[in-house]
Amino acid sequence: MSITLLTIQVLNGLQLGLLLFLVAAGLTLVFGVMDFINLAHGVQYMVGAYLAAALIAYTGSFALGLVLALVGALAIGLAMEGLIFRHLYARSHLDQVLATFGLILVLNETVKMIWGAAPISVAVPEALQGAVAMGEGVLYPVYRFAIILAALAVAGLLWLLIEKTRIGMLVRAGASNAPIVSALGVDINRLFMIVFAFGAMLAGFAGAMAAPILSVEPGMGDSVLILAFVVIVIGGIGSIRGAFAAALIVGLLDTLGRSYSVDLLRLFLPPAAARGVAGGLSSAFIYILMAVVLFFRPEGLMPARGRT
């Protein structure tokens, strides 16, 4: 594999990792602050993608559609929190897993009823079309660079919000010890609602940004959800820094593992068989990583401070 191809694979890995981070950030906060396992977080990503697809087509403007999609994702997040999740915070993890599993079915099917089961595609906005030459006639799409930059910008904003503001301080405190925060007179339910809605919006943003490069289809959130769980478990539950590092590791491992294992298997398998086997094996890499991390550091690579 040449340097150019390696660069492209690294960029693809970064882009996947950053999108994963946007999904995982909300998930890890919800998990860390509220001790709540939200399997339905992946459908927020899907909802974001669908809203973006519909609203961009409706308004005819990518930017306007994206903003409206974010508002929509936020509204749906608030609605779900108020109607269902609020009643589950005090329940066992098993109940939470089950109820949010049910919500996945509901939202996947609702989306299928509204938009149909066939994938829909979203056009890349005009300003971001085209590609950058990476030398030797290899091109890399501008839009993918835009995703990387946008996700980095959001990650930076998130860092400022969490580290430098009062609400961020409460969130960090909540991730370390929610009962104490509550005992100190903070309205913990309001904090939960804010964290939840914000996380839903981040996932929706990731889905909306990914819409032009992926096919938007029912169930698209399920695989992302599982990846996001892998990320937050590797990074340490409740830890934004951990989620960021783990998301990049997972994104790079998945992308590079895939392309290298095809090359490696080609040495002793016919090409079609090599692709088939590599697809399965390389998908297993990140789960192997997760199992290893959990085995040696059950609390993750960078656990939130004060958590045991």
């Binding site: 396992i37 599982i226 769980f229 892998v230 399965g280 789960y287 199992a291 959990l294």
Partner: peptide
């Protein structure tokens, strides 16, 4: 492991088996 880590690690092993079966070309 225990607690949430146990849920997640069993999920991880389940996914490994899933992808291994996908690789049974």
């Amino acid at each position: 492991t225990k607690g949430v880590a146990f849920i997640m690690i069993t999920l991880a092993f389940g996914q490994m088996a899933f992808f291994f079966s996908q690789a049974l070309y």
